[in-house]
Amino acid sequence: MALNFDDSSHENGFWINALIGAIAAFVLGFIPFSTVLGGVVAAYLQKGETQMENVKVGAAAGGILFLPSLLALFAFGFLGLLSGSAEGFIFIMFIGVIGLILAGLYTIGACALGGLIAHAVWEDDFRKARTTATTGSSTETYEEAQY
């Protein structure tokens, strides 16, 4: 399977574009709010027909990026078992679950926000790309689309 990064990159598939967005967010992790950038990348590659489609692919990128965080819950559980008491285990798991929920809200929410931003910024370009991909060519230029 060859990956497309041209005007018809939505043909890569929803999950491939979401994975690429998650990888972009991970690689750009040193930048504040890199998760938003990951959502932007995923939505830009998806070039969805509707705003909701771009938000969904952004949220999926956040979900993929969030999956390794689930390992932290197991680490908290292991630390709780080392405490030797049931109360310690329950308390540490409670703190771990609360932290995991907050991290999930940030990660998935920020990536979904990136999908929303991408749709708002490139809506005309997405429409043009879909027109070009379905007809094979477009008689309308970018300047004509603005008027």
Rank of each mutant, 00 (worst) to 15 (best):
E140F: 12
V40Y: 08
V97N: 05
G136R: 05
E144N: 08
Y106V: 10
G99K: 04
F76Y: 13
G77L: 08
T132L: 15
K47C: 09
W15R: 01
G136W: 02
I92S: 09
A59P: 00
L19Q: 05
A75E: 11
F66L: 10
L37P: 00
K47V: 05
L113H: 01
R130G: 03
L79V: 11
I16V: 15
F74D: 10
G136I: 08
E53V: 08
A22L: 08
F89D: 03
V41Y: 09
P32G: 08
L45M: 11
T132E: 15
R127A: 15
A129S: 14
L67Y: 09
A72F: 13
I31G: 00
F30W: 10
A120H: 07
E11A: 12
E87G: 04
L70E: 00
S69Y: 13
L37M: 08
G96C: 06
Q46C: 06
T134V: 14
F66A: 09
G109N: 04
F89H: 07
L105V: 14
G21D: 03
A133C: 11
W15D: 00
Y142D: 13
A112G: 08
I108T: 02
L113K: 02
L71Y: 08
L28G: 00
L70C: 06
T139S: 15
L3S: 06
N54Y: 10
S83L: 07
D6P: 00
V57K: 03
A75Y: 05
T134N: 14
N12L: 08
I64V: 14
L116Q: 09
A43I: 06
T134Y: 12
G109C: 07
V41L: 10
I98L: 14
S83Y: 09
A118F: 05
Q146Y: 11
G13M: 03
I16E: 01
T132P: 08
G99F: 10
Y142N: 12
G29E: 01
E11W: 13
M1T: 10
A112V: 09
H10M: 13
L28I: 08
F91Y: 12
N54E: 06
K128G: 15
L73V: 12
F76V: 04
Q51A: 13
A61S: 12
L105T: 07
S9F: 07
E87C: 05
G96L: 04
T134L: 15
A129P: 01
F66H: 02
L37H: 01
F76G: 03
L102R: 07
G114T: 07
A72D: 11
F126T: 06
I98E: 05
A129E: 11
T134W: 11
G115H: 08
Q146V: 15
L37Y: 02
A110N: 10
F91A: 15
G104P: 01
M93T: 08
L116P: 00
Q51R: 15
G99D: 00
N54P: 01
V57Q: 03
G80N: 02
